[in-house]
Computed example of a mutant assay.
Amino acid sequence: MNSKPSITIDPSHKQAPTRDGSTTTLKQHLPSAKSSQSHPAQAATSDSNAKLFFVGTATTILEWQGIRLMTDPNFLHAGDHVHLGPGVTATRQTNPAVDLHDLPHIDLVLLSHYHADHFDQEVEASLRRDLPIITTPHAHTHLTSKGEGESFTAVHALDAWEDMFVNIIDRNPTPSTTAASSSTPTSRSRRPCLRVTGMPGKHVGDGLLSKANDILGAVPPTNGWILELGHSLSADADTSLAESEAFHCGYRIYISGDTLYVKDLEKIPELYTHAGKPIDLMLIHLGGTTIPGPHMPLIMVTMDAKQGVQLVKLVRPDLTIPIHYDDYDAFLSPLSDFKTEMSQAGLDDKVVYLDRGDEFQFSVRDP
Score class of each variant (00 low, 15 high):
T320A: 02
T60F: 04
E148W: 06
A44R: 12
V82H: 01
F360N: 07
K202T: 07
L354V: 12
T153E: 11
G85Q: 10
A212Q: 12
W161D: 07
P96T: 04
A139Q: 04
F53M: 04
G257H: 02
I133H: 03
I253M: 02
W64H: 10
S36K: 14
G56I: 07
K34P: 05
D337L: 13
N223T: 13
P220T: 04
Q15H: 13
L127W: 07
N49I: 08
I168T: 06
T24L: 13
A154K: 15
Y261P: 03
G147Y: 11
D329G: 09
Q310V: 01
D329C: 10
T174K: 13
D337P: 01
P317N: 07
D258V: 05
H105W: 06
P221D: 07
E162C: 09
R316D: 08
H295A: 07
R188C: 14
G201K: 06
I215D: 01
L260Q: 15
D72G: 05
T178I: 15
S187D: 13
I323W: 04
A157F: 09
E266D: 13
R195L: 11
R129Y: 10
F331Y: 07
K14D: 02
G79R: 02
A41W: 06
T8R: 08
H324M: 09
P40A: 05
H77E: 11
H118L: 10
P192A: 04
G250S: 05
D163W: 04
T320P: 01
L62C: 02
Y261R: 03
D236C: 02
G293R: 01
V309I: 10
A154G: 11
A33S: 15
P297V: 03
Q37I: 12
A16F: 03
D318I: 02
A50W: 03
V309D: 04
I291H: 05
F331M: 14
P185Q: 09
A157L: 08
L241F: 14
P297T: 02
S234M: 12
G224A: 02
K4A: 14
F54P: 03
A33G: 08
D80Q: 12
L229I: 11
S112K: 11
F119C: 12
T186M: 11
S35G: 06
S244N: 15
P292D: 08
K339D: 07
H248I: 06
D355Y: 00
L76Q: 14
D163T: 15
D130P: 02
T320N: 00
M303P: 12
T302M: 01
H115N: 08
A58M: 04
Q310A: 14
L143F: 09
Y261N: 08
D10W: 05
H138P: 13
R190C: 12
N167A: 11
R190G: 01
I133Q: 03
Q310I: 00
S22K: 13
I279L: 12
L298F: 09
H101K: 14
T320H: 00
I268H: 05
R191E: 12
L143N: 10
R129P: 05
S333Q: 09
V351A: 15
